[in-house]
Computed example of a mutant assay.
Amino acid sequence: MTTPTQNGTTSQGLGFWKILGIIAVVLLALAIVGPLLKGLFWIAFVALAIYGGWVLLRSSKKNHNGNSY
């Protein structure tokens, strides 16, 4: 059972459009943010690999030469 609101439309119909609008906004946000996060993941992965290699190199130099940086 629906109850009319002040402008003559039903509250059930207004709720449908509100939910549909929220779903559309969420899908649009995911379409924009998803590829952005995917690209940032690979950039962060490569940066972490480079940093790890640099730490290993610095560690091995410290052990061989006996001096620390």
Rank of each mutant, 00 (worst) to 15 (best):
I32Y: 09
L48F: 14
W17D: 14
N67Q: 12
A29C: 11
Y69Q: 09
L20D: 10
T9N: 05
G52Y: 01
V55T: 12
A24H: 05
V46T: 11
K38P: 00
L56T: 01
T10L: 08
R58I: 04
N65F: 13
G8H: 01
I50T: 07
L20H: 09
G34W: 02
K38Y: 10
Y69H: 13
W17N: 15
G39S: 02
T10S: 09
F41G: 03
S68M: 06
V55H: 05
W42L: 09
M1R: 04
N7I: 05
K18F: 13
Y69T: 15
W54G: 10
N63L: 11
G34S: 07
H64G: 01
S59C: 01
I19W: 13
L27V: 08
I50P: 02
L40Q: 04
H64E: 10
Y51E: 13
G21H: 01
N63Y: 08
T2Q: 15
G52F: 03
T10W: 08
P35M: 00
G39T: 00
K62I: 09
L56Q: 01
H64N: 06
S11M: 09
I22D: 04
G39Q: 02
F16G: 02
M1G: 08
S60W: 10
F41H: 14
S59G: 04
F41S: 09
W54Y: 15
F41C: 03
F41E: 12
S60N: 06
T10F: 11
T3F: 03
L36D: 00
L56H: 00
I32A: 08
N7F: 11
